[in-house]
Amino acid sequence: MTKNDIGVSNCFEATSHPMERHTEILDFLCERETASVGELADRFGVSRMTIHRDISRLVDLRFVRKVRGGVTVLPSVVFESNYHYRARHRFAAKQALARRVAALIEPGMTVMLDDSSTTAALLEFLPERQPLTVISNAASLVEALRYDEGYTVICLGGRFDPTMNAYLGVTCDLALERLSADLAVFSVAGVQRGCGYLQDDALVRTKRIMKASADRSVLAFDSSKFGKSALHQFARLSDFDHVLTTPGGEPAVLDELMSAGVALDVVAGELETSDITAASS
């Protein structure tokens, strides 16, 4: 049996760790949308049987759907629950939003940061706001800040969810109920009918408690989230002290939100062309 018989590529070095390969497969599908089993086996230097197992796992996680001879990514907001995908998606837009959020933070404040990749973009802008107390359930934020003397870091424990890269559940929620903050920062998976939506009910519970524990709250999301659907309603946009989005939203929708009392701010920045194109399509 030759390498080509088992679908091992001569051009790509095999990815040995399944979780890393799953992330790379998702990244590849983000660009291509659909791929055959043979194509994936060649690209990642593994057997077709291994790719079939990878696809079955991603189907179980509700990120992809099997098609004849291959796989296609699900065209829904469910896919955005994968942290590794979200962290790479619309990065320039998230930076523009994070820069504006950072302007609301003053040295000495206590801030609650949710597990979203939009909030994670704040890391670049927080050093100039030190000293800060940071409360978060986001594993990436805690890991990045824990050794920096400019921050007092409070990690919200609980059940670790590797897909969300965050701590969730009853333990996390109970810890939140005993804390308070000056400002809480959030993002959402979709925005419809004047409300922000999320796919996971555990995320909704945690974010609602986080919001109730803060004196002020800010919601930041790129304009592609307008019109997207998710299963659970998080909160009305009018309930936030600041709502930040990026250019590309339909003017009629923006006008309707502002008429309803939403403190909406469209954040200009050096956005990727694909960000604006996707948001307006």
Rank of each mutant, 00 (worst) to 15 (best):
V8W: 10
F12A: 14
E13T: 13
M19Y: 09
R21M: 08
H22V: 05
H22N: 09
I25C: 07
L26D: 00
D27Q: 09
F28H: 14
F28E: 10
E31F: 08
R32I: 03
R32E: 15
E39W: 01
R53K: 07
V59D: 08
R62H: 12
F63N: 06
K66N: 12
T72M: 10
V73M: 10
L74S: 02
L74N: 04
P75M: 02
S76A: 04
V77R: 05
V78F: 08
S81H: 09
N82Y: 15
H84F: 09
Y85K: 14
A87N: 02
A87C: 04
R99D: 06
R99N: 05
R100F: 00
T110R: 11
V111D: 01
L113R: 00
S116G: 13
T119K: 02
F125L: 00
P127T: 00
R129A: 01
R129K: 13
Q130V: 00
I135Q: 04
I135A: 04
S140A: 09
R146V: 08
R146M: 08
T152L: 09
C155S: 14
L156V: 08
D161Y: 08
P162G: 03
N165F: 11
N165M: 04
C172A: 13
L174E: 14
L174H: 13
A175I: 09
E177F: 04
E177P: 01
R178N: 12
S180L: 08
L183T: 02
L183F: 03
L183E: 00
V185Q: 00
A189D: 11
V191S: 04
Q192A: 13
G194F: 10
Y197W: 15
L198T: 01
L198Y: 02
L198F: 07
A202V: 05
L203M: 15
R208H: 01
I209W: 08
A214T: 14
R216I: 01
D222Y: 11
S224M: 13
K225H: 05
K228F: 03
F234E: 01
D239C: 01
H242K: 05
L244H: 12
T246R: 01
D255V: 02
L257W: 15
A260Y: 11
V262P: 14
A263V: 04
A268H: 14
L271C: 07
E272Q: 12
I276W: 12
A279M: 15
S280Y: 02
S281C: 11
S281K: 10
